[in-house]
């Protein structure tokens, strides 16, 4: 089977987030870059599917030239091919992003490469539009399930499970299909050194899609207002036991 995984380069934010002076971006001066945990899991799932069922895997990203780092990270884990939809670094909204991905998949098909499965993260870590996978599925006329946490493939069919507040929900659909993945579907492996070296040498296919105004325009970013509050220190180590129990009683938990 042939699997395509779509990922997005985002800052590897640490404990807290700071903004650039013009409030247009996260201040990334001291940060590395990565993809969303959901997408790390989508990449891992694609690698496992090919290990199990045979076939080939491709990773795609829409982003600036430096996003080849994230493509190489995916290839270091076992993805074979990589496609960069190269942008000039400005923000692409969900409509524009999905259109560029659809165009790339159609170009692949015209070149004789069709995909049984196109995978995404459920939402990107940064802009979190919750829609790229669904838009791509709609444009390609494919069935789609979002937010899956388990996947089994058999005989042209996919069986997926997702977690709801009430428990687990199961769905079935035929391939080809689009699936968006949530963290927890697997525990991604770490790249091996030979994997990294192999990925470094691989060629990356490049396409320059045309930016379009999709209708959702970022004006500025802002940090949520922090409410002032103070902390009551109940004590140190075991000595605090009694105060903690008293707190439970005060909160009517005991």
């Amino acid at each position: 089977m042939n699997v395509l995984v779509c990922v997005k380069r985002v800052p590897a934010t640490a404990g807290h987030i700071a903004l650039s002076a013009d409030s247009q971006e996260i201040d990334t001066r001291y940060l590395g870059f990565t993809v969303s945990p959901h997408e790390e899991c989508a990449v891992e799932e694609a690698v496992r599917l090919i290990e199990k069922h045979g076939g080939s895997s491709t990773v795609l990203t829409l982003g600036p030239e430096v996003a080849i780092d994230q493509l190489r990270d995916a290839m270091a884990l076992g993805i074979e091919r990589a496609i960069l939809l190269e942008t000039d670094g400005r923000e692409w909204d969900p409509v524009a992003t999905a259109a560029a991905i659809v165009e790339a998949i159609e170009a692949e098909r015209a070149a004789g490469r069709s995909y049984d499965l196109v995978m995404f993260g459920n939402e990107s870590a940064d802009s979190a539009g919750y829609q790229i996978g669904v838009r791509v599925a709609d444009a390609l006329d494919l069935p789609c399930v979002t937010g899956i946490k388990a996947l089994e493939i058999g005989d042209g069919e996919a069986m997926v499970r997702r977690q709801t507040e009430a428990g687990w929900e199961t769905a079935e659909l035929s391939l080809p299909a689009v699936l968006t993945v949530k963290e927890g579907i697997n525990l991604p492996r770490y790249p091996s050194l030979p994997g990294r070296l192999r990925a470094k040498k691989k060629e990356i296919e490049r396409i320059k899609p045309q930016w379009q105004d999709g209708g959702l325009e970022k004006i500025r970013l802002k940090l949520p207002v922090q409410v002032e509050h103070s902390v009551e220190i109940l004590g140190k180590n075991g000595d605090a036991g009694a105060q903690v129990v008293e707190l439970f009683q005060r909160l009517r938990l005991l």
């Binding site: 987030i17 979190a128 970022k218 004006i219 500025r220 802002k222 940090l223 949520p224």
Partner: peptide
């Protein structure tokens, strides 16, 4: 954005 760690002001058409 970022699960609510960050907010975005945007124009919707």
């Amino acid at each position: 954005r970022w699960g609510g760690s960050l907010l975005e002001e945007a124009h919707l058409k």
